[in-house]
Design a protein around this nucleic acid. Structure first.
Lengths: 199, 199
DNA sequence: CCACATCTGTAGCGAACACTACAGATATCT
DNA sequence: AGATATCTGTAGTGTTCGCTACAGATGTGG
């Protein structure tokens, strides 16, 4: 038996295009017609490769998570908790205002509240956001063991705080906040981190 | 000439129902069928009173803003900038986890990114969020004139920071964060405010 | 070269969407 | 009471949605 006709498009490049559309219009605001045009394929090719609109979103999220993990590795590699926080906040400020992408972050602009039948989408996005928060928390647990964080500093609280601030920056980016505005938010947040870290 | 048959439903009560649906499912995730059922009216009554789905959203936002302004008056009435920040953050933590409403805030869950044809919705929500930020900023300008804030404290930065944190709490609430989690975020944020305020 | 498996483009499916035509009901104003 | 103006419920409208049937194209394995 043969292997069949090979795919005529690059799946990863197509996912990058799809990512951009979901990011810009949200899951529910995105239509299959927009996706197929951006991906330069026809509906049957989309469905053969990704199964459904939601399947395509998940594939795009997987690809997004890959990039994000590589990026987080750099952040978590900093030698102190303080520097981890600084890199995390500042890199987020820059990434969310990168002109190469829509404002904010796919994990937030993708959809916080969805309609009946898509309840799974906000849940899926939340899970991916939580993953980043978990990575931060584990890094701070290690920092605490290394006495890099104060005796009463709580890794859970610190990670949650940083996650909240970067999520808030996504909303601000949606309101039109520019890179400098987000960097200022990051700078102020860092002061809270310092206060909390030395507790 | 007569005044015509009077409306058989309470417009404000209906708007409260509509608010809940938009809040829970987002603008694009909400259908007219869901709205008419929640409001206990039929489509023609909805369109006669509010013009369109987007008109209904704006009316609901107006009603939401009324309640919010009354609430902000309490917050802004605090005697010090520090207490304004504390009330703002803590009240937000509680409001966003009020079991009487969906999680988060209508101005965020309503829709950060929308599809073609609804581009106006995220813009409208952003304008309402900015209004709250403006109220905070003006209060901090006054606090600075009263020497209640440090010489180098920037009202714009402080207001933007608080706006970002509460927006971030909306995202966290969407991820399932409970009241205590949001209060902890508020508490940490307050430390940043203190550091920045005495600058 | 042939059977087979998979992809591709065209064309269109049923369902759900926002919205409305219409006729009857209910008020006001003279 | 009669004329008029607006609301209400029924029953749809045309459009767009996510998705797919089908036939032809293009590869692999024998």
């Amino acid at each position: 038996m043969g292997m069949g006709r090979p795919r005529a498009f690059d799946a990863d490049a197509a996912l990058d295009r799809a990512m951009d559309v979901f990011w810009r219009h949200g899951y529910e605001g995105t239509t299959i017609a927009q996706l197929t045009e951006a991906m330069s394929i026809n509906p049957p090719s989309l469905y053969a490769a990704f199964g459904s609109k939601e399947g395509l979103l998940k594939a795009a999220l997987d690809r997004y998570s890959e990039k994000r993990d590589a990026w987080m590795e750099k952040v978590l590699g900093a030698s102190t908790a303080r520097e981890v926080a600084e890199r995390f906040l500042m890199e987020h400020a820059d990434a969310q205002t990168d002109p190469a992408n829509p404002p904010g972050c796919l994990l937030v602009q993708g959809g916080l509240a969805c309609g009946t039948g898509s309840e799974n989408v906000p849940f899926e996005l939340a899970a991916r956001r939580t993953h980043t928060e978990d990575q931060l928390r584990e890094r701070f647990v290690r920092a605490k063991a290394d006495r890099d964080l104060g005796e009463n500093a709580d890794p859970v609280t610190l990670a949650r705080y940083l996650s909240a601030v970067t999520s808030g920056m996504c909303v601000m980016a949606s309101s039109g906040a520019d890179r400098n505005a987000l960097r200022e938010i990051a700078a102020v947040s860092l002061k809270a981190f310092d206060e909390q870290a030395k507790a």
